[in-house]
Amino acid sequence: MRYGMVIDLARCVGCGACTIACRGQNGTPAGINFNKMKKYEVGTYPSAKMKAIPMPCMHCDNPPCLKVCPTKATVKHENGIVTIDTDLCIGCRACIIACPYDSRQFIWKMNNYYENQNETPFEKHQYKKYQKGTVVKCVFCIDRVNEGLEPACVHTCLAGARIFGDLDDPESEVSRLIADHGGVAFKAEIGTEPCVYYING
């Protein structure tokens, strides 16, 4: 069992629903984005195109972040998901330096979404999960996945651009899409063995 994701860039419209669904699901403090949406353009006028690429954690099979973590706060689960044990994190940020995908963020302080305002009841309730001075990142909504649901970003995607499944199973939709569309992983050449593949990019 090795969970992975396929992101169909031909379908992605860069709306950011995934980013916000993630925020709602994980209740992250302001400034923390588990799922980043990079917008860019290619080509020159008049044949330019607007593009977007969502960047969740790649949940590498050979994760550099896990290697540099001195306290083993970063763990790779049997299902392939890479998570951080907040209670073990010392906040050294070596993993952020090591990650080639900018997938990790440090909680410099617990920011409220409404600036210069107190934390809302939602924030008060959800921020309990997070500690200032620790590193956080996308966890493939591991709680949802353990319940048999797909991650929030996949669930909410308007375009059906995200597909989640078992990379070890050659019959799974993700495996088939990677095979049929020539899925590529980001910066695979440096040996991180990412579990997030992009197709039709």
Partner: peptide, 17 residues
């Protein structure tokens, strides 16, 4: 970020780090 946890490094024993 969490200076008081510095000694967790000994506990973690991650020798590839």
């Amino acid at each position: 970020g969490r200076p008081l946890r510095a000694l967790y490094i000994l506990k973690g024993r991650n020798f590839i780090s």
